[in-house]
Design a protein around this nucleic acid. Sequence first.
DNA 1: CGTCCTCCCATTGACGCCCATAAATTCCCA
DNA 2: TGGGAATTTATGGGCGTCAATGGGAGGACG
Lengths: 160, 160
Amino acid sequence: MDQFVSTFTNKIDTKGRVSVPASFRTVLAKDGLEGIYCYPSLDAPALDAGGQRLVDKINGLVEDLAPYSDERDHLATALFGTSEILSIDQDGRIIVPERLREHAGITTHITFVGLGEKFQLWEPKRFETHLAEARQKVRDLRKLLGAGRRGSGGPEGARE
Amino acid sequence: MDQFVSTFTNKIDTKGRVSVPASFRTVLAKDGLEGIYCYPSLDAPALDAGGQRLVDKINGLVEDLAPYSDERDHLATALFGTSEILSIDQDGRIIVPERLREHAGITTHITFVGLGEKFQLWEPKRFETHLAEARQKVRDLRKLLGAGRRGSGGPEGARE
DNA sequence: CGTCCTCCCATTGACGCCCATAAATTCCCA
DNA sequence: TGGGAATTTATGGGCGTCAATGGGAGGACG
């Protein structure tokens, strides 16, 4: 498996450490960054995270812009400037800096959410409501799509 | 990691010294310049800084312009003329000359902002507002990128 | 002779490395 | 196939090292 899947909720200990789900660590190990690249999501109260693949993608975005252009500096500021490389200790734990926790409203527990090539870190309660909204949106969307295809199937394919 | 990432705010002591973030020192050490190349940003109240890689890049920019052209002289003046090589002492600290601090409005604290291949020095308060603007610009920019690039693998990193 | 700068040392707090425990899971073997 | 052992995972805590910061001693230069 080379993708981040499923969700896990782990506890932050008194030192601020959290275990990274084992399956996520396996994926990270394969793409050669000893650490987790992590930054605040631009439009959600959550943190985006990933490994070397994610870094490469961001590099690609920035390098496509002209050197010394405003655009490039802004993009680099918003992405690199707000990012952290979270090192994974030998027990598979990371420390999420205060600045990042604050953006996501994280206090005692963190929910790790696999999104395929990257994953997100959420405050558990917030993720619950976010998930509910996302599912509702999918249902609405499918109604529109489905209206043209078939009469009325139950909510089947797009679930979970 | 061979890139400048994340932001750090450090204090200037009574002798005018500031610690360079350890992770930035690591990156600098790898690219072989004894010190930090530093000059006022062209379009922001901040200082641009980096190592040998940045110097090479700037050389490349200047050399691309016609010799003895006005453009070339202006660019060379604006960049080289206002630059300084800041030496790093054995405790990892630099002294930022008055002229440079003035351009950035720096007084007691300096915020180091990683931008990948280079980094910037900001007055902390100013950087806060600058970051907010940058994030907004990126959100707008992403809409454009996302709309146009859908098929090619997509700007995943900047989404969400 | 005083100012500025370089080198060196001290302190404090954060972080990394190590070990311990408990629960859950996998594996093995009768 | 059932049960027990070994492994893995999540979590807790001790301790040494390093980074950030402050301050002093010595030297160069006006």
